[in-house]
Design a binder for these strands. Structure first.
Ligand code: FES
Ligand code: FES
Lengths: 145, 145
DNA sequence: TTTATTTCAGATAATATAGTCTTAAATTAC
DNA sequence: GTAATTTAAGACTATATTATCTGAAATAAA
């Protein structure tokens, strides 16, 4: 688990990136996806269903069914996926866990943390999924045959 | 819970900062500390014992006993506390949760994440606890009479 | 129409994290 | 020495997160 996201969220990110890279028109099944990425079938199934309900994916049942990204891929950023799973405000809390995080009564690292927050936000929000896909060099995503 | 640390770790940070601000030679009891910070007594007790075993705090039993920071306060950074609780390598993982995080086969945000990592490291490692204490403006730490 | 494939939904189990309770041991103050 | 205070340690409970299992519903292909 990365320090910033839940497992669910990580799986969501991996899956969406896989869809962006490997679905050329066709749909991709949970089976293929979880096999390739080596992540748990049923658990990920639930996550994909969730993302579908939230309008980020489309699904289709039956043979040759599966999941794919919704049409306007350019609008999908990592941030949208993260917010769909971990909720917006996933970065609003104080590093020390103090009840409130504000400039009025800051903790010792509030100012620096604010900069880190901005960096993370930029990291998640500036590129869309297709652009992300191009920059990924993970063996799991090597398109085969 | 902040996105980067466990509850345990947050409590540890809060507690150590409290000790830095409020112990003027004397020891501070778990009771006082957890009351002031409004955090769970027994749970925090265990954390403080842990930090004591790891040499960051000293403890003393009996009336007027309690905890205080070890002598060379200048050497104690947030990073040391975090590493004592969440372990070192708490920041080594890939944002996407991919099995390995390296420059050889980077994910789409690896490069940017590396910068964030450095910022966080700097945030935790550059100032010692006493310096931190001075910059904190939380009502919980208002020193009373 | 039948069969195979696939998502969908809900129940259940396993694990990790957070938090509590109880008793013992040490120490101080009287 | 006795009583009060405080940390130490271990068992226990609660909650959240992660993961699995089962069966139903939809769909496509034969
Ligand atoms: S108050 Fe601590 S990060 Fe904002
Ligand atoms: S490979 Fe993803 S952050 Fe390094």
């Amino acid at each position: 688990m990365s320090i910033i996201f839940s497992r669910q969220c990580e799986y969501a990110l991996q899956a969406v990136l896989y869809l962006a890279l490997n679905s050329n028109g066709k749909m991709i099944s949970i089976r293929e996806l979880t096999n390739k990425l080596d992540i748990p079938y049923h658990f990920v199934a639930k996550i994909l269903q969730d993302l579908t309900r939230k309008g980020l994916l489309v699904s289709h049942k039956g043979p040759s069914g599966g999941f794919s990204l919704v049409a306007p891929v350019k609008d999908i950023t990592l941030l949208k996926i993260v917010e769909a799973i971990d909720g917006s405000g996933f970065m609003d809390n104080c590093v020390f866990g103090f009840p409130s995080c504000s400039c009025d009564n800051p903790c010792a690292v509030h100012e620096q943390w604010d900069k880190v927050r901005n960096s993370i936000h930029k990291m998640l929000a500036t590129k869309n999924i297709l652009e992300m896909a191009g920059e990924t060099k993970k063996p799991q995503y090597q398109i085969k045959e």
